[in-house]
């Protein structure tokens, strides 16, 4: 078992009588960026919810930095260095500063201040409006806040659910650019997406179909697979 990063093995999960995930194994190592590619309903969100602990895994095991977290509560996982940005991403009724505070809730006061100062440097839009309600931000700014909030805890693994959702193409490329900046360093990123623009970031790709992993490998290998290439990149 690799020591650094997140590893999921043979995950099965679902809602009530409906099983969504059928034995998914996936991993993301320290410093690596991995994209989970799949259409709506492929099980991307469900997998991330299992990994953060919002939904129990019926089968399978999960490790974070070599420590098993399959049955840990979400707050334990976050404390151990896992961060998750949902599609919503932020608390609309709270200010920007409060959102960051929540992200970094487990840090000691001094370290939290440093972490927030650093984030305000990376995201100057947020620094200008730290007392404004998150709900007053535009869609793109909200994603930035979502990313900043998840990073405030100085996580080892950052999971993101559809960072492109609801954004215009212009903002999508801005989000991708921001995430590229974050790739340097030891941060591991797991991005669930259906927008292929995010493949620019990917060291490796998993494609999900019907709750199963259909393909695993590099973007180059994905291009080499004709059928996959057609279904994700069209005929171009």
């Amino acid at each position: 078992m690799q020591a650094e990063g997140l590893v999921a093995e043979e995950i099965e999960a679902g809602y009530g009588k409906v099983q969504v995930l059928w034995g998914i194994s996936a991993s993301v190592a320290s410093g690596e960026s991995v994209v989970l590619l799949g259409a709506n309903g492929a099980g991307k969100t469900t997998l991330l919810r299992v990994l953060i602990g919002l939904l129990p895994a019926r089968q399978g095991r999960i490790w974070l930095n070599g420590e098993e977290i399959t049955h840990a509560r979400p707050d334990r996982r976050v404390r151990s260095g896992l961060a998750y940005m949902s599609e919503l991403g932020v608390f609309g009724g709270l200010t920007i500063e409060e959102n960051l505070l929540i992200g970094g809730q487990f840090l000691p006061a001094a370290r939290l201040r440093r972490s927030m100062a650093k984030l305000y440097e990376i995201f100057p839009v947020l620094a200008e409006r730290r007392r404004a309600l998150a709900s007053s931000l535009s869609g793109g700014e909200r994603k930035m806040l979502g990313i900043a909030k998840a990073l405030a805890a100085e996580p080892k693994v950052l999971m993101m659910d559809e960072p492109s959702a609801g954004l215009s193409p212009l903002f999508v490329s801005e989000v991708v650019r921001t995430l590229k900046q974050l790739r340097e360093g030891a941060l591991a990123m797991l991005i669930a997406e259906q927008n292929i623009a995010f493949l620019d970031l990917a060291d490796r790709v998993y494609t999900l179909e019907g709750g199963r992993v259909r393909f695993e490998g590099t973007v180059a290998a994905m291009h080499a697979d004709n059928a996959l290439h057609r279904s994700y990149f069209g005929l171009s």
Binding site: I52, L54, R73, P74, D75, R77, V78, R79, A83, Y84, S86, L88, F91, G92, G93, L94, E98, L101, I102, G103, Q105, F106, K149, A153
Partner: peptide, 20 residues
């Protein structure tokens, strides 16, 4: 208290953000 208000705003999101 801020964590408490986060739970008020969105319980599920609060769980996901690691709030106990």
């Amino acid at each position: 208290g801020i964590l408490t208000r986060a739970v008020m705003v969105n319980r599920e999101e609060a769980l996901a953000a690691g709030i106990n």
